[in-house]
Lab assay of single mutants.
Amino acid sequence: GHYRIRINGREFEIRGISEEEIRHLEEALRNGADEKILKEIVDRLRG
């Protein structure tokens, strides 16, 4: 998958993330885990 997200007015492209991972992120966001989720995304993109 290849997705664009906007955070604090800046747009980011996220590549190589699966539909299942996105559902997991959405679930966590609904549970209020904003900073933790951003850290997970950044860590994943770093490799």
Rank of each mutant, 00 (worst) to 15 (best):
I41K: 01
L38S: 01
E20H: 10
G9R: 01
E21Y: 03
E11Y: 13
R6E: 15
D43N: 08
L45I: 14
E26H: 05
E11W: 15
R30E: 07
D34I: 10
R46G: 15
H2N: 13
I41N: 01
E11R: 01
N31Y: 07
H24Y: 12
R4I: 15
R15L: 11
E13D: 07
I5R: 00
I5N: 01
R6F: 15
I37K: 11
E21F: 04
F12Q: 01
G32C: 07
I41D: 00
G32N: 10
R44W: 13
Y3E: 02
E11F: 09
S18H: 05
L25G: 00
G16Q: 06
F12S: 00
E20F: 08
Y3Q: 01
E40D: 09
I41G: 00
I37A: 12
Y3G: 01
E11P: 02
A33T: 13
R15N: 10
E20T: 11
I17N: 02
E21G: 08
G1M: 06
D43V: 05
E19K: 11
I7D: 00
L29F: 08
L38Q: 01
E40K: 05
E40L: 08
I14W: 02
A28L: 15
K36P: 03
I5Q: 00
V42K: 02
G1Y: 11
E21C: 11
R23N: 11
L25N: 00
H2S: 15
G1P: 13
G1K: 11
E27Y: 08
H24P: 05
I14N: 00
K39M: 15
A33P: 08
G16R: 04
R4Y: 14
D34Q: 04
H2I: 15
I37M: 12
L29K: 05
L45H: 04
I7P: 00
H24F: 15
D43T: 06
E27K: 09
Y3D: 02
I7N: 00
L29Q: 07
K39T: 12
I5K: 00
L38R: 02
G32S: 07
E19C: 08
N8A: 06
R15W: 13
S18A: 07
E40S: 10
K36C: 05
R4Q: 08
R10E: 15
E19F: 11
R23Q: 14
A28H: 13
G32E: 05
V42P: 01
R4A: 04
H24I: 14
E19N: 03
R23D: 08
H24S: 13
I22K: 08
E21Q: 11
E35M: 09
I14T: 01
H24L: 13
R10A: 12
D43P: 01
G47N: 11
R10Y: 14
R44A: 10
V42D: 02
G9H: 02
E13A: 03
G32W: 04
I14L: 14
I7R: 00
H24E: 12
G47F: 06
Y3R: 02
L29G: 02
D34E: 09
A33C: 10
E20S: 11
A28M: 14
E35Q: 07
E27G: 07
E13G: 02
G32Q: 07
A28I: 09
E21M: 06
R23W: 06
I41F: 09
R10D: 05
R4V: 15
N31G: 13
I22T: 04
R10W: 08
I37C: 04
E21P: 01
D34V: 13
G16S: 07
A28V: 12
R46K: 14
E11T: 10
V42T: 04
I14S: 00
G47H: 10
I5L: 03
I41E: 02
L25E: 00
L45E: 02
L25C: 01
G47V: 12
E26F: 05
G16E: 06
G47T: 06
R44L: 12
G47W: 04
I37W: 09
V42Q: 03
R6Q: 15
E11H: 05
R30Y: 11
R46I: 15
E27D: 11
G47Y: 05
L25I: 13
E35G: 10
E35P: 10
R30C: 05
R4D: 02
A28S: 08
R46F: 15
R23F: 11
G16H: 12
Y3I: 10
K36A: 12
H24G: 14
G47P: 14
G32I: 04
N8S: 04
I41A: 03
I17M: 05
I7V: 08
V42I: 15
R10S: 06
R30H: 12
R44D: 05
R6V: 15
I5A: 01
E40R: 03
E26S: 05
L29R: 03
E26I: 09
R46N: 15
G47L: 09
I17T: 03
R46T: 15
E11C: 11
N8D: 07
R23A: 14
D43E: 13
K39H: 08
L29P: 00
S18E: 03
L25A: 01
H2C: 14
E20Q: 07
I17P: 03
S18Q: 06
R15S: 11
G9F: 01
R44M: 11
E21A: 08
G9W: 01
N31D: 12
E11S: 06
R15V: 15
S18L: 03
L29I: 14
Y3T: 02
G32R: 03
R10V: 15
D34W: 14
E27S: 10
R23S: 10
L25Q: 00
H24M: 13
V42Y: 07
G16D: 14
A28N: 05
K39G: 09
I7L: 06
R4N: 07
G1C: 14
I5M: 01
G16L: 09
G9T: 01
L25W: 06
L25T: 01
E26W: 06
G1R: 06
R23E: 11
I5F: 05
L25Y: 03
A28C: 12
Y3N: 02
K36R: 12
H24R: 11
E40M: 09
G9E: 03
E27M: 09
G1Q: 09
I41H: 02
L45A: 02
I17K: 03
G9A: 01
E26L: 09
A33H: 08
N31P: 04
N8W: 05
D43K: 06
I17C: 11
E20K: 08
E21K: 03
R44F: 14
G9L: 01
V42G: 03
K36D: 12
I37P: 01
D34H: 09
L29A: 04
R6K: 14
I17L: 08
N31H: 07
E13Y: 13
A33V: 15
K39P: 01
I22D: 01
K39S: 09
A33I: 14
E11G: 01
L38G: 01
N8Y: 07
R23G: 13
